[in-house]
């Protein structure tokens, strides 16, 4: 998706257009590029937390399939985070290989669907990962904004 965005932005640059009309507003090309880079940066930050996100979703939703996970994340983050297939499946397979997820295949309509659910170890690991995440967020909060704290 981002490669497509970059290609689009590059095409605009080649045409030497200095601004672009987006939903009725004239945006300078540098603004669009900055927005794109910011979003790319956010995606990189989220990438390190992908396993925790998946585990948390499965803790809340009992069992989920790949496409459902991508849509749920998109919905919960109001489109801010889009998990690509290229990132989702390696993460799911890694969690499965580590024994944190169990797999259940069921026939849905006229096709097979692979559901993931937490194993006993997976439930324990989810609690650990969420605790780590809370600690990380607290530390980051202290670092970037020492005047305010979550507590």
């Amino acid at each position: 998706m981002y490669q497509e965005h970059t290609k689009l932005l590059d095409t605009i640059s080649i045409k030497k257009s200095k601004s672009l009309e987006v939903t009725g507003k004239q945006l300078h090309i540098s603004t669009i590029k900055r927005l794109h880079i910011n979003k790319m940066g956010n995606q990189k930050l989220y990438k390190g937390s992908l396993q925790t996100i998946i585990l948390k979703l499965l803790e809340t939703n009992d069992k989920m399939y790949g496409y459902e996970i991508t849509q749920k994340v998109k919905e919960l983050t109001k489109g801010e985070l889009k998990i690509t297939e290229g990132a989702l499946y390696p993460a799911l397979h890694k969690l499965e290989a580590d024994g944190l997820l169990d797999v259940e295949v069921a026939k849905v309509g006229n096709r097979l669907r692979k559901y993931y659910k937490l194993t006993e170890n997976g439930t324990k690991e989810t609690a650990n990962k969420l605790e780590e995440m809370q600690e990380f967020l607290k530390t980051m909060q202290h670092l970037v904004n020492p005047k305010f704290s979550l507590e």
Partner: peptide, 13 residues
Amino acid sequence: DLKDEILDHIISD
């Protein structure tokens, strides 16, 4: 180990 899952994802898409 991958086919059904990817097939389901593409169909859902």
